[in-house]
Amino acid sequence: MDFAAAQHDGTSSLRLRRVLYPTLPAGIRSGVVIEHELDRGMVTVLDTEDGRFWRGRAGDVQVLA
């Protein structure tokens, strides 16, 4: 899935936003951003279905709410 159209520009925090994030192999899942490092452009997402964590670039997530 191409998340390029939904990239975040880094000007405000995504913390506590519900997002879609990429998974391997070639899937997507949803979760809540629990940490957003604005200076590095990195986010940590808590998957609300299974409790796993995902860490990656803020530009790789798509904000849902």
Rank of each mutant, 00 (worst) to 15 (best):
Q7F: 07
T11S: 15
R15Q: 15
G51S: 10
L14G: 10
E37D: 15
S13C: 10
R29W: 00
L14Y: 04
R52A: 14
V33S: 01
G31C: 01
T11P: 03
G27M: 10
A58M: 05
I34E: 12
D2C: 08
R29P: 00
E35P: 01
E37W: 08
L46M: 13
P25V: 11
A58Q: 06
W54T: 07
V33P: 09
M42T: 15
A4C: 06
R29T: 05
L38S: 01
P22K: 09
A26W: 04
E49F: 06
V61L: 03
V45H: 01
R55Q: 09
H8Q: 10
R52D: 14
P22C: 07
A6I: 04
F3M: 11
V61P: 12
L38T: 05
G27K: 09
A65I: 09
L46K: 14
D60F: 05
A26V: 03
V19Y: 00
T48V: 13
V32D: 01
V32L: 12
D39S: 13
R52I: 05
W54P: 05
G10S: 09
V33C: 03
E37C: 13
W54N: 06
G31E: 00
G56K: 02
R52E: 14
L14C: 10
T11R: 14
D60Q: 10
R57H: 13
D39C: 09
D39Q: 14
D47M: 05
T23S: 07
R18L: 14
R29C: 04
V63F: 00
S13L: 07
E35K: 14
L16C: 05
G59T: 13
S30R: 08
V32R: 10
G56S: 07
D9S: 10
P25F: 07
R18E: 11
D2M: 04
M1A: 13
I34A: 05
L38C: 00
A26K: 07
R55N: 02
G41Y: 02
H36S: 00
D2G: 11
V61S: 04
M42K: 05
F53W: 02
I28C: 02
D9C: 06
P25A: 08
P22F: 04
G56A: 08
M42R: 10
A4F: 02
G56E: 03
V45Q: 01
Q7A: 15
R55T: 14
D2T: 07
A6T: 15
F53Q: 13
R57A: 14
R18W: 06
W54S: 11
D47A: 09
V19R: 04
V43I: 15
G10A: 07
Q62A: 15
A4N: 12
D9L: 06
R52Y: 08
D50H: 11
E49S: 12
A58Y: 01
R52K: 14
V61D: 02
D50C: 12
G27T: 13
L14H: 06
P22W: 06
L16A: 07
I28E: 07
S30Q: 13
V45Y: 01
R40P: 00
I34W: 01
Q62H: 01
A5C: 08
V19E: 01
L16T: 12
A26H: 09
V61E: 03
T48Q: 13
E35G: 04
E35A: 15
G31L: 01
R40H: 08
Y21G: 06
G56V: 03
Q62S: 08
S30E: 12
A26I: 02
V33L: 02
R40A: 15
S13I: 11
D9K: 08
R18S: 11
Q7E: 15
